[in-house]
Nucleic acid binder design. Structure first.
Lengths: 152, 152
DNA sequence: TCAGATATGTAGCTTTGGCTACATATTAAT
DNA sequence: ATTAATATGTAGCCAAAGCTACATATCTGA
């Protein structure tokens, strides 16, 4: 066997230097997903309980307060939240914006899945993972589908 | 302001000790997603070029060969692949199984998105992220939708 | 008020998934 | 058969996200 393989169907030569079809699941993407989860949760906590505390976020995510505290620092660095020692967490303008976008997207995905007959609980659960990977185009397709359903 | 917040709507007291609604995006889940990506790519490389080399996997993922080599070691530890120094990578029985499941699921998601009118390229791209978060139930709903479409 | 409960912070460890730089093996070509 | 190109491996760095253990601050209730 050669290092480059003797291509069967593909093309012919060794390394056609294919442009990597997808940079994809980079570390960065992942941490951005986490950022979205955080701002979504923070916004929700503020809306429903009046404020967002580290411990609440931790409970929601099922991680320890230490993890949350450290991540909050990162989000602060990135300008999404503000926080002071022993105080509750606030969203900056851009954090607000991101949380709203995320929430809207999240809801669309949930509604869409439910419209397919997926049980509510499952839809909510799946949406949390799916929402981060739905492009504008796909989201629009979801909305279109929902509208068709609605008008039918 | 109290540490526990004065709940508005939620319930009442401070920390109702809500069971964390979702363990979710744990580190483990993430590395499992990566495992699936790897076995999918490895299976595809074997199918299309005859063998899977570290460098090919690296090109497909858009990462360096070092990252791939280390991850392959992990997958080997986990019993999904076998590999020997300077040799190509093989899937174990369970690696095979996982790759097939992943591929099937991937294809279903792509077909489903396309059936919604999402452009092929976008569907493929989105599917890569979405496929890891689609539960059995949701997948079944996708299939059902596809069948209805087909018979319509 | 002050003591106990709860929340937050800090130190430090682990694994994972990125990377560069450099060494070595393998393959391919002359 | 050597050499040059390519692939693989190793060492070691980084950041993120998880953890436990322990210290400190804040809040609440008696």
């Amino acid at each position: 066997m050669s290092a480059s393989a003797a291509p069967a169907s593909q093309k012919a030569k060794s390394k056609p230097a294919l442009p990597h079809q997808h940079p994809r699941r980079t570390r960065e993407e992942h941490s951005h997903e986490i950022a979205q989860d955080y701002v979504e949760i923070i916004a929700d906590l503020i809306a429903t309980t009046g404020e967002a505390r580290v411990i609440d976020v931790a409970r929601r995510l099922g991680v320890t307060h230490v993890t949350v505290a450290r991540t909050i620092k990162r989000l602060q660095r990135e300008g999404l939240v503000t926080s002071l020692p022993y105080r509750s967490i606030f969203l900056t303008a851009s954090g607000q914006k991101l949380s709203e976008e995320s929430r809207r997207r999240h809801e669309t995905v949930v509604d869409f899945l439910k419209s397919l007959g997926v049980p509510k609980v499952v839809a909510q659960s799946d949406a949390e993972g799916i929402e981060h990977h739905v492009s504008q185009e796909t989201l629009r397709a979801f909305v279109k589908h929902l509208r068709q359903r609605a008008s039918a």
